[in-house]
């Protein structure tokens, strides 16, 4: 761990259940990110009109953007049910990524305010959820027979690789997001450490910090896009017949 003096607000054995541990910082940040996304989405799509103005245009641009991602990977007829999933993923991950770039909050020695996506547990949860969803829709849309046949095509020898692929997909999808965001936050924390050493340190750290925050914004956007894109790619592998 980089910040040795920063601990996480962890509570263990909740309700006396030995495996149920919570990182309260994660719980807080998940709630905050969800709330922001929810309020923003509802605020942006209130007062809908046939002739869109201002915010509605922006929301429709987001819809069009995610629609474009889905259209790149599968045809629109099968893909349109995934539009809300894609929209929620891209907005939630983007907001989560940016939460940690704007500021960090430490209370006492506990790190409370950060990106929820800078925690591997949470990104892996998201990616596992996505992979489970792809399998679920694979069965639902193509039927169990076609779904299971996919595992042994073109030859039965592929079966172990196909099964391993599901887990590697989960890991790469989750860890890519986590790694990018976590690395960004580590570098930011180092720069803050430099800035707090004194006047010279502050002057020296100011410029690279601004640059790195700008870059983190960029990374946050890119990673949200990549996560959504890959979700749709995996989804299309499961729900389309032609490949």
């Amino acid at each position: 761990m980089i910040n040795l003096d920063h601990t996480a607000p962890i509570v263990e054995n909740v309700f006396g259940i030995s495996w149920l541990d919570f990182n309260l910082s994660n719980v807080l940040m998940i709630a905050v990110a969800s709330l922001i996304v929810f309020l923003f989405s509802v605020w942006g799509s209130r007062n809908l009109q046939m002739k869109p103005t201002g915010m509605q245009n922006f929301m429709e641009w987001i819809v069009g953007f995610v629609k474009g991602i889905i259209n790149d990977t599968m045809d629109w007829k099968t893909g349109k049910v995934f539009l809300p999933l894609g929209l929620t993923l891209i907005t939630y991950i983007l907001v989560s990524n940016l939460l940690g770039v704007m500021t960090m909050g430490v209370v006492g020695h506990d790190l409370w305010w950060k990106s929820p996506t800078a925690d591997a547990t949470l990104t892996l949860t998201l990616s596992a959820m996505v992979i489970v969803l792809t399998n679920f829709y694979g069965i639902k849309m193509r039927g169990p027979k076609a779904y299971f046949k996919e595992y042994v095509s073109p030859v039965p020898l592929m079966l172990p690789f196909k099964i391993i692929e599901e887990f590697t997909n989960t890991l790469t999808l989750g860890l890519r997001l986590f790694g990018n965001i976590f690395a960004g936050e580590v570098l930011l924390s180092l720069l803050v450490g430099l800035a707090t050493t004194g006047v010279l340190g502050f002057i020296g750290a100011a410029l690279p910090m601004m640059a790195w925050q700008g870059f983190s914004l960029f990374i946050g956007g890119i990673q949200a896009f990549v996560f959504t894109m890959l979700t749709m790619v995996y989804m299309s592998h499961k729900v389309t017949n032609d490949h």
């Binding site: 920063h6 919570f22 960090m104 547990t121 930011l188 924390s189 450490g193």
Partner: peptide
């Protein structure tokens, strides 16, 4: 020197609750 409002991150363990 790290103050109250600072930037940092933790990897965290694999907690079921989270």
């Amino acid at each position: 020197y790290l103050g109250y409002l600072t930037i940092g991150a933790t990897v965290g363990g694999l907690r079921v609750g989270d």
